[in-house]
Design a protein around this nucleic acid. Structure first.
Lengths: 191, 191
DNA sequence: ACTGATATTAGTACCAAGTGCTAATAACAA
DNA sequence: TTGTTATTAGCACTTGGTACTAATATCAGT
């Protein structure tokens, strides 16, 4: 009689490997009290790659993430339309690396980054800095979502070097984020 | 004559491997136009482990992080002190890649990211999301600055699943950023 | 030009953790 | 008993190495 049915063993095998991809066929054979060959047949049937490939997968994922974990430099999102000192539009595709592992919801600072860098970009000046901002995350955004962000200049006070920008982000037409940005600029109009 | 001196080759070798740990001795030999044995001697002298070990290192680092899966991994800046549902402290070193090329001033979204992720981290809950935030960039921050950010839970409304967090960032004792974060959480106290 | 040190290359045996294949045996079911 | 499925065994081969020995090459100093 079989210690366990083949099916059961394969189910546990998948689990075990998923839990710890660093386990060798020999260790698995000992664990399940079968021959190494059986483990290999099982892996084939389940199309689970060999140890080295599994490790390489984990490593290369890590590598990608490491590279991507600092992409927070230039403008976040792609600017698709801009009319300086008036309005601007950018698109940002939310990927796995932008969301919380736990719940798959985009981390706020990415949405803020897109909005903020668009607010900076719309200002027609050498120097534009965010002074103050009031923002609301209206609805969770998830991986795969395409966020369309619109910035509109709604007010200027050249005496105080201030410009007010309203930013709204939507996914599939639904508002997910709104913010008001008070920007500082060095120059006034037409200087 | 040597194509390059041994030293020079070894310097480049270290760099190359650091950049891409997935490279084999054979590829390196081709790249530097030397024999595989030379590459191996170089690796020994520099005590760089073999390909498989390198990959395993990358993979296991990744694995550790994944296992933790606490938001503490996903924080921008390094958390140096935390007392859940009460306060937290993180440090973030501003580098060249975080500032505007034009004026050397840190982009707002990096400061926001540090503050926001600290506000998320301080919440003792599986799920914590920023709902609303009011922030002020008090003083410009520059490359080389060390930003110390403190988050303090200043209020809770468990009926509405809300927690209010006040975040203050300083550089050399001077306040550079303040923000108030309204956080959403799934669970109430002691649930 | 000769000697010695350093650097490079070549070659062998061996290892881990496999793949790919064939063949034998075991277990079970009808 | 026969057929099917499952398991085990064994062998040759692969990658990307280690560990070691031995032969050359290259260069510097006298």
């Amino acid at each position: 009689m079989l210690r366990r049915t083949k099916k059961e063993r394969q189910r546990l095998l998948s689990e075990t490997i998923a839990e710890n991809p660093f386990v060798t066929d020999e260790q698995l054979a000992t664990q399940f009290q079968v021959s190494v060959q059986t483990i290999r047949l099982d892996r084939m049937e389940l199309s689970i790659p060999e140890l080295r490939e599994r490790i390489k997968d984990v490593a290369s994922k890590n590598y990608e993430n490491e590279v991507k974990s600092l992409p927070i430099d230039e403008v976040i999102g792609e600017i698709v339309d801009i009319e300086l000192d008036n309005r601007a539009l950018s698109i940002f595709d939310v990927k796995e690396e932008h969301v919380f592992q736990r719940n798959g919801i985009a981390r706020g600072h990415h949405l803020f980054a897109q909005a903020n860098s668009l607010a900076v970009a719309v200002i027609n000046d050498e120097l534009a800095l965010t002074v103050h901002s009031n923002i609301t995350f209206v609805k969770p955004v998830r991986a795969g979502n395409r966020v369309i962000t619109k910035a509109i200049v709604i007010g200027r006070d050249d005496k105080n070097h201030r410009t007010k920008v309203e930013v709204t982000s939507t996914v599939n037409g639904e508002t997910v984020f709104v913010g008001e940005f008070d920007m500082y600029r060095t120059k006034g109009k037409g200087e």
